[in-house]
Nucleic acid binder design. Structure first.
Lengths: 111, 111
DNA sequence: CCAATAATTCGATGATACTGGAAATGTCGA
DNA sequence: TCGACATTTCCAGTATCATCGAATTATTGG
């Protein structure tokens, strides 16, 4: 994952509604949920929801597929995995968020 | 980490300059860097840098300490760890970003 | 106290994001 | 083809974010 992609993904999740939306889709699993079902669950006007769905889609965190009249959205777990990996490697010093300056000269978690 | 904190932290990192800034501080380790040194390294006007530093500080991702005339900023590794943990648990289904709907009924990684 | 240094806050400007109703688009059953 | 349904796009208004020079605050050595 490149830096620009990470910024996009972080920006997509940096919103109360979108974070809740994404979590909802994560819980829904690969099956996903129709836009209407999401709007009902999250109690959000359809147009506002659509705006946020588009935002998350642009960032690559969710994917869309059509099923008859409904548009089904589902979380892209690989993308989320990529984001977490990016944060861990680039913003935590490679290990599990331990300081990197003093200790570990290489990124190896040996004794 | 609560949802509101996560949104703040994500918003703080969702910017090209601030992400670079945070990464720089992570690399700098607990020792940190003075604002002036950061401004020079990142080639950013002092006032702009100060704006971004304040943003990251508000979000709890970095901390400030004074050392004579200089203000030293350093990454808060615990906060970052908390954010990664939040994303892993709440947005990846608990495991390592694997779908959660079908499989794993509890969040237990036993065989 | 004073001059020099380090950094922040202020203020004005432009850009981008969020909201939600109304209108448009795509899909299907009959 | 028509009507109903599902969702998006359009639009305008409001709010928040980003930029950066100038003015201000804090700290120190002499």
């Amino acid at each position: 994952m490149k830096t620009g992609d990470a910024v996009s993904a972080l920006g997509a999740l940096a919103n109360e509604h979108r974070l809740a939306l994404f979590r909802f889709l994560v819980q829904a699993g690969p099956e996903g949920r129709a836009a209407g079902a999401i709007a009902e669950k999250l109690e959000m006007p359809a147009s506002s929801l659509s705006f946020h769905l588009a935002h998350l889609t642009r960032a690559g965190l969710i994917v869309q597929r059509r099923e008859s009249r409904s548009l089904i959205y589902s979380a892209d777990f690989a993308a989320m995995n990529g984001l977490v990996g990016f944060l861990t490697e680039n913003c935590c010093g490679g290990a599990s968020c331990a300081p990197v300056a003093q200790s570990a000269p290489k990124k190896r978690k040996a004794s």
